[in-house]
Design a protein around this nucleic acid. Structure first.
Length: 361
DNA sequence: AAGCTAGACAACCGCGTTCCG
DNA sequence: TCGGAACGCGGTTGTCTAGCT
């Protein structure tokens, strides 16, 4: 996309804002209010593009912003919400009064990602690296030749590399060795049905990365996060502040393969299903939950813009993506997605058998 | 003191969505 | 209904600073 013409003028100033520019912006907004950003530079006497003015105001000059460092409670909430809805920074920031999406994003990239990685937890999927690796070797229905290290996310790969690099190996977000982007290798064919493991083991885990995750699922995820922190607070004092729902290994029941790696790097083992895959709602309440979404939002004191609720709620209905019969968030998304994909493939196979055969062989 | 490195955060870029004439 | 402008978001890059050698 071409930069807007008003940002392309050669005499426009770029880079850090001076105190004088800030003062002009503050004075202008206090007089005229927010909005109409494209006309702000001219009216406020600034040699900046409107986009830059909006950014400066929303990220730094707004009077309701907090400028102190993140509290442990905020940190904990960010990690939980990221595990639930992925890098939807604006949504996460809405749950943290006084914080901007840029604040949260930067804090995640500079601090939290590193912390999780050092704990042996993949900050993308929020699973132990050992489990990801184990799942990676057990991808049902996928040819082994189709697997490649390039499809692992960079945190996992660097965690692996760290084990072979005794010291001084950089592992921060800015200084990772350049690696290929995560690659989806689902290779769905009419003859091989993707398994839950194959989907969940993918580093593009729908819990964290799939942008099609609808708002309703995200709200369920946020609900999970808030509920989880309530009923497992007993562990908080002895565990990392952002994983209070972690349990010691003796109680872990369903994380079949999260045994070695995380425990080697940390004394903790995590019951990931408790945290990520826990049933949001009993199956028979699915429809009821849809109907009660508004009630749910208010009960959780969530700050969700009406426009998002309306538009994404409509999208949810349009796509026929409802809460699954098993109630689990990830499995909801997974099953609906996979089912839709397979159904569509079957349709196309019936309709265009020759073309489909060519496509897959 | 100079150079280097990592951390922190501000700002930019590109793209998708919404608004409006 | 359409097209351009405006806005919002997430990813990426740039810049400054502190600490270390």
């Amino acid at each position: 996309m071409v930069r807007p013409p008003y940002c392309d003028k050669p005499n426009l100033k770029r880079g850090l804002w001076s105190a004088e520019e800030d003062a002009r912006m503050l004075e202008y907004v206090s007089k005229h209010g927010e909005g109409k950003w494209t006309s702000v530079p001219k009216r406020a006497g600034l040699r900046r593009c409107g986009k830059s003015c909006r950014l400066r105001w929303t990220n730094h000059l707004r009077p309701d912003l907090k400028h102190e460092s993140f509290t442990p409670k905020e940190e904990q909430l960010i990690v939980k919400l990221h595990a639930a809805i992925g890098s939807r920074w604006s949504m996460i920031a809405q749950q943290l009064p006084g914080r901007t999406d840029n604040d949260v994003k930067n804090y995640w990239n500079t601090k939290l990602r590193k912390k999780l990685t050092e704990m042996g937890i993949d900050p993308v999927t929020h699973k132990p690296f050992s489990q990801i690796l184990a799942d990676y070797g057990n991808v049902g229905g996928l040819p082994k030749s189709g697997m490649r290290i390039g499809s692992l996310n960079k945190d996992l790969k660097n965690a692996i590399l760290m084990k072979t690099e005794p010291k001084g190996f950089p592992n921060t977000s800015r200084h990772f060795v350049p690696l290929p982007s995560p690659t989806i290798t689902m290779n769905i064919s009419p003859k091989t049905e993707p398994t839950q493991e194959s989907f969940l083991s993918n580093d593009n885990n729908i819990l964290s990365n799939d942008k099609s995750l609808n708002l309703l699922s995200q709200l369920q995820a946020i609900k999970l996060v808030t509920e989880a922190s309530n009923y497992k607070q007993n562990y908080e004092s002895s565990l990392p502040s952002f994983y209070p729902e972690a349990t010691f290994s003796s109680s872990s029941s369903s994380s079949s393969s999260c045994s070695s790696g995380a425990q080697e790097m940390s004394p903790l083992a995590f019951n990931w299903n408790d945290f990520i895959l826990e049933d949001a709602f009993p199956p028979n309440e699915a429809q009821e939950q849809q109907n009660n979404m508004a009630e749910f939002i208010s009960s959780q004191n969530l700050i969700i813009p009406d426009s998002q609720i309306q538009s994404e709620g409509a999208t949810n209905m349009d796509n026929n993506t409802s809460i699954s019969s098993n109630g689990a968030i990830s499995e909801t998304c997974e099953s609906s997605f996979v089912e839709a994909l397979l159904a569509r493939e079957n349709e196309m196979l019936l309709e265009f058998p020759d073309l489909m055969a060519e496509a897959f062989y």
